[in-house]
């Protein structure tokens, strides 16, 4: 620091010795509180607030029963997104990485989820089932792993071949899988699955991880998100349902998802691991925000760009402070 600069610095640090004016901060605070309360009240009266009812498995099965059915088959076959997710739910996938850092995998399995059992078999077993479904259930339970796998995977493939149109699927040896899927679809349609998935045999439950993952495996939630303009690739992170403002303060976070290489899943390593890279980038930038007073260049921007002359216009005028010369 030059002598000049350090003299200025110590004056800036010391209590102000110059002119003062009357200033009633308590009154200012009370008036501000009144104004903000009134503004909030006005906005609430005229605009209300968003509240789209939550989606249910019942609604899913009623509106698109084939999609629900197909998703149930994928859970059994292990081909759904959740079944192959990896940490923190299972070890079926390696998860994302940040170069050599496999943080997702290293964090381990904290919320074990077995998509076939948790989403299909256990719920089916917790309710009295029609004879046909009960028989399918016991066949499944006593079958060898290879058989389960073969039935479900073959059936899943047969369903994909006809684009998930259940009535059009080719007949074949799918074991108990079609009956299980039918049984689960019936449970979903009746609304029973909504309660069972949450409780899983218990009474109190405050964790909805299983329902959210199961939902996400199908098209119902995704379609609803698209319809409401909430998809991440189109700034959805900042949006709210209806005509309401969302988390606009996430604009910078959201921005990365719109531009290459982050928005291209095919591009390696960044696009394919976009979630991890973007979170790390934002963590880094947040640290930058906090540390601005210490970052050379950035911290002198507001001194070089004279917006401060507008902010303190009155003071600069009365004191007659001249413009800084370019160095």
């Amino acid at each position: 620091m030059s002598a000049d600069k350090s003299a200025i610095h110590s004056k800036e640090s010391a209590p102000w010795q110059g002119q003062v004016r009357r200033y009633d901060i308590v009154k200012e605070g009370v008036i501000a509180l009144l104004i903000v309360s009134l503004l909030t009240l006005t906005l609430s009266i005229f605009m209300g607030s968003p509240d789209e009812p939550s989606l249910t498995f019942k609604g899913w099965a009623a509106s698109n029963s084939d999609n629900f059915y197909t998703t149930a088959v994928q859970e059994l076959a292990g081909t759904s997104e959740s079944a192959g997710y990896g940490a923190p739910y299972n070890d079926a996938g390696v998860g994302l990485n940040l170069g050599p850092l496999w943080l997702q995998k290293w964090a381990g399995i904290h919320h074990p989820i077995n998509s076939a059992n948790d989403f299909v078999i256990t719920p089916l077993g917790e309710q009295q089932q029609p004879a046909e479904v009960a028989a399918a259930l016991s066949t499944w339970r006593s079958a060898a792993v290879v058989d389960k796998q073969r039935w479900a995977v073959d059936y899943d493939a047969a369903l994909s071949a006809v684009e998930g149109k259940v009535s059009a699927v080719k007949s074949g040896d799918y074991g108990p899988v079609p009956t299980l899927a039918k049984g689960l679809t019936a449970m979903a349609t009746s609304g029973a699955l909504d309660g069972l998935l949450l409780s899983q045999g218990g009474f109190f439950q405050t964790d909805h991880t299983k329902q959210i993952l199961f939902f996400g495996d199908g098209a119902y939630l995704d379609d609803a998100g698209t319809a409401a303009n909430l998809q991440g690739g189109t700034w959805g992170m900042m949006n709210e349902t209806g005509r309401y403002p969302g988390q606009a303060w996430l604009w910078l976070y959201s921005l990365w998802y719109q531009i290459p290489p982050f928005n291209n899943e095919e591009s390696h390593p960044i696009g394919a691991n976009a979630d991890a890279y973007i979170l790390a980038l934002m963590g880094f930038m947040t640290l930058g925000l906090v540390m601005i007073p210490f970052i050379p260049g950035v911290r002198s921007l507001p001194i070089r760009i004279p917006l401060h002359r507008a902010i303190w216009r009155q003071y600069y005028q009365t004191e007659g402070i001249g413009k800084r010369k370019k160095k």
Binding site: E52, D207, G232
Partner: peptide
């Protein structure tokens, strides 16, 4: 506890999971 929170939970979990935070911040 509405559709918006279902959606945000579904989308946001991937971000937090991808760097391991999701194991604790669920």
């Amino acid at each position: 506890t509405n559709f918006d929170s279902q959606w945000i939970a579904f989308e946001a979990k991937d971000g937090f999971n991808s760097v391991g935070i999701g194991a604790w911040f669920t």
